[in-house]
Design a protein around this nucleic acid. Structure first.
Lengths: 341, 341
DNA sequence: TTGAAAGCGTTACCAC
DNA sequence: GTGGTAACGCTTTCAA
């Protein structure tokens, strides 16, 4: 039978309340007594019981605020599904989740929304942080007020965030190179379509791609790089123009959004299913392109987990006082082709 | 605030004990009273509180028996890790797991081991069922005695098992074809190395492979099929002999075990990294072959989940009285290449 | 600084 | 057939 507070209290000859106070570093316990209790607990290998904690915690509810740049971005469909699943799973333990969705990458907007959530008395925050000093400072401020912050999808390493859940962009870039290598026998002329040269994640993918081609596939050449700002219209025009200018291109590497636009350009040039295409994220439209054979492989990043895991971690942190086991939770790099969608 | 048994008791003007009995269909409640209570609960949208249930269930512990043919099969390393994780996670809620490992596929042995677990008073059973009438009957018998059974990795569809957790062999076979198609431009001569023609899963993978090549890659031809009984020694000899007899072979499809032996044969013929190789399961040895470039792609089946999910489902079934949401829990078909191990 | 007791939601046991 | 009560492990409040 597992060790309980009651057991410890009996051995230490104190009340359960005192043991509880000591174990949770609450004020009002004689230092010597506390030390004695802690020692007994350690010796006996005491592990607090989650059900008991949950039941007691239920009296006051715990609120996690989540904000996502999900409007107009289908990638977050699955993230939200993961958040929703965690919410359901932990509702019985007194957990509440407030989800706020927005569009775009304005720092001002993000700051303002964080403050709105603070008004709602959140006990923790999940967000996709913008890489800006003011956001970093805000996270530090929240941390001081005992409001832990988890970064999703895009990390802010030198901030006070509790941890990060998302993918390793470098590795996902390398994987794209590996796939193109396999598909072309290691010899290819690639048109690289990025989202924005201001997005860290996009750049890291390109870096990973270049690392891998340099080391493993020296005959994979980048013929041209264009940016589309995750916009289909722009992607369409850029790809059309570039492919006309570079007829030797036989492969497309789509680093971020705009897949539909790129596909449209391919179709217009009669090159669909002739040019190899690798892109990211298993959104519904991308799956469709995969089925049609326009895209050959999609690299995904376990979006559902990116929603579920932060809530799970914060729950454990807030209710069970269990800190995250790691600082970085990298999701798997998942490869989807037509047959394993 | 959520509805509790207490609330229902107050409204129905009965005690909490009676409500509990009625809600859990226990004996000793007047039919009319029970009906009234059930109606109130439904109207109020009563959802039992998991933490409360767990705490109460802790008095008597719940035992799940698990038996795996894992001796000498590295695939199960991860399955066991998943079981272990679930065990830890639910230990606080009164869950115990007894794991028994064995080797081989003897029906007699499996039956005997089930009975040994029954002696331990298990409340549920997880196993990789052999496709045999006596096992089917045994599962039916357990079900009648209120001991639910979950099939892992290999299903027994027409038995009384509660549900199945594992991969879709047909789909994983199709995925192998898709990968070879991508890697060879749709034109290949394949040597197919299966485990045993008596293993349903292996045959289904081959069927899936043939379906997909027929539909999508008519120029992928199977030059030869050999069986290796999941044995490296046999695989080595069979692959060596077959490759000598069929010099036109440019691709290897390893349906089951024996990957190390096949790799050895390739090395001996100086064909490693020349012949495309697709195989299954991300065991440590297979990852090594991937890193060395001998194997180009490994198709995996979320082994960790195959351990975690059954325990999770049985926990919910036994402690929270929540039946599995589906009859078939297919794990994802996961593709690993050198870059995304 | 410490102890005693109530309470979280559910279940089991005993008495009627 | 039903009610009352104690118990699961933990936290919190009130008294001392």
């Amino acid at each position: 039978m597992a060790v309980t507070i009651k057991d410890i209290a009996a051995i230490a000859n104190v009340s359960r309340g005192t043991v509880d106070r000591a174990l949770n570093n609450r004020a009002g316990v004689n230092a010597d007594v506390a030390k004695r209790i802690l020692k007994i607990a350690a010796d006996l290998g005491y592990r607090p019981n989650k059900a008991g904690k949950a039941l007691a915690a239920r009296k006051k509810s715990t609120v996690i605020g989540v904000m996502l740049p999900s409007i107009g971005n289908r990638f977050y469909d699955e993230v939200i599904a993961g958040i929703y699943r965690a919410q359901q799973e932990f509702a019985d333990y007194g957990l509440k989740v407030i989800l706020r969705q927005y569009k775009g990458y304005s720092t001002q907007r993000q700051l303002q929304m964080i403050e709105e959530l603070e008004q709602e008395n959140i006990n923790a925050l999940c967000l996709v942080p913008i890489d800006h000093r003011s956001i970093r400072e805000k996270i530090g401020e929240l941390r001081e007020r005992q409001i832990p912050v988890v970064a999703i999808n895009s990390d802010l390493p030198d901030s006070d965030r509790l941890c990060f859940v998302g993918n390793d962009y470098l590795k996902s870039g390398r994987t794209a190179a590996g796939l193109l290598g396999l598909m072309t026998g290691g010899k290819a002329n690639v048109l690289l379509v990025t989202g924005s040269i201001h997005m860290l994640g996009h750049n890291q993918r390109i870096t990973g791609f270049r690392q891998s081609t340099k080391e493993e596939f020296p005959n994979i050449r980048v013929a041209d790089i264009v940016a589309c700002n995750d916009d289909n219209e722009t992607a369409y025009h850029e790809v059309l123009t570039s492919l006309r200018a570079h007829p030797q291109v036989d492969s497309l590497f789509l680093v971020a959004g705009g897949q539909q636009g790129a596909a449209q350009a391919l179709r217009e040039l009669g090159l669909e299913q002739k040019i190899r295409v690798v892109c990211y994220d298993d959104t519904e439209p991308n799956k469709q392109l995969l089925r049609e054979g326009v895209v050959n492989a999609v690299i995904c990043q376990e979006a559902l987990k990116q929603g579920y895991t932060p809530i799970y971690l914060l729950f454990d942190y807030l209710i069970n006082a269990v800190p995250p086991s790691q600082e970085l939770f990298y999701t798997d790099i998942v490869i989807k082709i037509k047959e394993n969608i």
